[in-house]
Amino acid sequence: MNGLGRLRASGQPSAPALERTLPLAAAAFWIAWFSWREMARRRRLLAVAAVMLVPVACTVAWRLLGSAQLFPANVMLANLSMLYLTFLTVLVSLAFGITAVGEEIEEGTIIYYWTRPIGRSAIYIGRLVAAQTVAAALLALSLAACFVVMTVGNSGVVTSRFVELYARSVAVVTLGCAVYTAIFAAMGAGLRRPLIAALIYAFGWEAMTGLIPARVQQLTVVFHLRNLVRNTEAGTSSFPNLLLELLRQLRHEAPLPEWRSLVTLLLVMVVVTGLGAWLLRRKEIFR
C-alpha cells in the first residue's frame, strides 16, 4: 500500500495546532508564486508580450525613418509615454486584472483555495500581486527595450534629463498598471460579467471624462498618471492636451501637485484592493 495506512507518528500535533490558520503573507506569497509559474506557461503571456513589441517596432521605425531635428528623441519619448499611459497600460492591466481572480471564480478553481486554512484576503492579494507584477514587468521591459533601441548608437540622446524622463515614465507606467490591475481585479471578483463594466470604465469613463476640463478629470486614474508626467513634453505634445492646458490656464487652475496625484493613486489602489478582498470574502459559487 505504498507505506500508507500507518497511524500518525506519536509526536503528532494536537487538534488546536492542527487548526492553525496560515499567515496571510505566507499564504499570499505561495499563491502568487504558483500563479507566476502558471502564467509563465500560458500562451496568453506570449500574446501580450507580442503586443508589447509594437511600441518597440515603432521605435525601430523612428530610428530608421525619423529625423532627429524634426522629431527628436524627447518628443518620441513623450508620444510613447502617452501610448503606454492611455492605451497599453489599460490593455495589459485589463488582460491580467480581470482574469486574476475572476477567472478562478468563473471556472470554479477557486474552490481549491477556499478549502485551505487561509483567509480569502490572502487568496485575493496573492493572485492580485502576481497579476500586477507580471503586467508591470511586461510594460517595463517593453519600455526598456524602446530605450535601448532609442539610445544604442545614438549617444547624443542620452542626457541626464532624458534618462530622468525615461525613468519617470517607467515608474508612472508601473504605478498606473498596478492601480488599473487592482481596479479590474476587483471588478473580476465582484461582478458576474466584469468585462462589460471594465470596458465601459476603461474606454468610456477614463477616456471620455478625461476630456472634460476642470475637476471632473480628477476622478480618472489617467488624469493623475498624466499629471505625474506633466513635466515632460507629453503634457502638450498632442492637440487635446494642448487644449486642456489652455483651458486650465484660462480658468486659472494651478496644476495638481504631484504628491497629491501619487497619494490619490496609492489610495485608489488600496481602497479597491480592500474592496476586492471584501467582495471575495462574500462570494459564493455554486458549481
Binding site: E19, R116, P117
Partner: peptide, 12 residues
C-alpha cells in the same frame, strides 16, 4: 474558523 480546513479534504 478557516483553520478548521486543515482537518478537511474537499473533492469538488
Amino acid at each position: 474558523e478557516v483553520g478548521l480546513f486543515r482537518r478537511i479534504g474537499f473533492c469538488p
